[in-house]
């Protein structure tokens, strides 16, 4: 039982980090109609900025602030120089250009920071384990990630429903030409949304980099999972991104943790172990295929977009 709770918390933490990635991706698609493969590169930029600044100043918190600033700045620059020219293009050009951006970012980071992974030290405030009600010990930092993810989800909800920027984002999703006709500076709105998405990705990169490691290419596996998340949740929907991210995080963690054991009761244990872990590793894609069959537009997507 304790094991189940601990693994569920692991799944929740994983899901929250996926949400930070997926939220930016889905906003950018919803508002600008752009598919951005380089979103994983922004995740990496955030992680490296955090590692570099935390290493230089000794303060994790300054590093975290730097990750937000660097990723948002990188996002804004990329939007102004490259992405802006792609809104009117078809998806193929967008895919290729953002794929090219990945190459530039990855090799550029390798050139700046070398090929060695960097490691961050947890701030003393958040290191160690805490005892939860029920006696389970759990790392404080991971617990903080869950809380932070939830807070950001709520913040995004407020931003989109209660602020002027949010109104424009919703209007942009509904009808792009209309917003421009109403006199909103569409170019600035786009840069702002792109930078916001980038900052969220950079923050996720810094947080995950803190518990794991900071290295070139770290954003790519996460990017693909974020795609799965928004296909499940429905492209353009932040609510869908949250639900999709938690579904993916839970399915993946719990599947890997328990499927081999469950299978072992049915078939030979050593075969169960190999088959179980093979199935567990593709479980989230099976989930995605299932959602596609029932709702091709995703759980919270609008029909027209699929």
């Amino acid at each position: 039982m304790m094991l189940l709770i601990e693994q569920a918390l692991n799944g929740l933490q994983y899901g929250m980090m996926l949400f930070l990635m997926a939220a930016g991706l889905t906003l950018v698609f919803g508002v600008m109609g752009l598919i951005n493969l380089a979103h994983g590169a922004l995740y990496m930029v955030g992680a490296f900025a955090c590692a570099a600044v935390a290493g230089a100043t000794g303060s994790f918190w300054l590093g975290l602030a730097a990750s937000l600033a660097a990723a948002a700045a990188a996002g804004a620059v990329v939007e102004l120089l490259v992405i802006r020219r792609l809104y009117a293009r078809d998806h193929l050009d967008q895919v290729l250009a953002t794929f090219a951006l990945i190459l530039v970012f990855s090799e550029g980071t390798r050139w700046l920071f070398g090929s060695f992974p960097l490691y961050l030290t947890l701030p003393p405030l958040l290191s160690g384990a805490v005892t939860l009600p029920g006696g389970l010990q759990y790392p404080l930092f991971r617990l903080a990630l869950i809380g932070l993810g939830a807070a950001i989800a709520f913040g995004l909800y407020l931003l989109i429903t209660r602020t002027r920027l949010g109104t424009r984002i919703r209007a942009g999703e509904a009808d792009r030409e209309m917003v421009a006709a109403l006199g909103v500076d569409i170019a600035r709105l786009y840069t702002a949304v792109f930078a916001l998405g980038a900052a969220l990705a950079g923050l996720a990169g810094a947080l995950v980099g803190t518990i794991q490691s900071v290295q070139v290419g770290m954003g790519e596996p996460v990017l693909i999972l974020a795609f799965v998340v928004i296909v499940i949740g429905g492209i353009g929907s932040v609510k869908g991104a949250l639900v999709g991210a938690l579904l993916v995080g839970m399915t993946d963690t719990l599947g890997k943790a328990f499927l081999p054991g469950v299978l072992a009761r049915l078939i030979d244990p050593s075969a169960a172990n190999t088959i179980g872990s093979a199935i567990a590793s593709v479980l989230i894609y099976v989930l995605m295929a299932g959602v596609l069959i029932v709702r091709p537009q995703g759980l919270y997507g609008e029909r027209g977009m699929a």
Binding site: V228, I230, I235, M288, L292, I293, M305
Partner: peptide, 20 residues
């Protein structure tokens, strides 16, 4: 399966199946 979708969904879905 993938051709049930189109546009950007198609890109992501084909990517995801290959990843699977």
């Amino acid at each position: 399966l993938s051709l049930r979708t189109s546009g950007v969904y198609f890109i992501m879905v084909t990517l995801a199946f290959a990843q699977m």
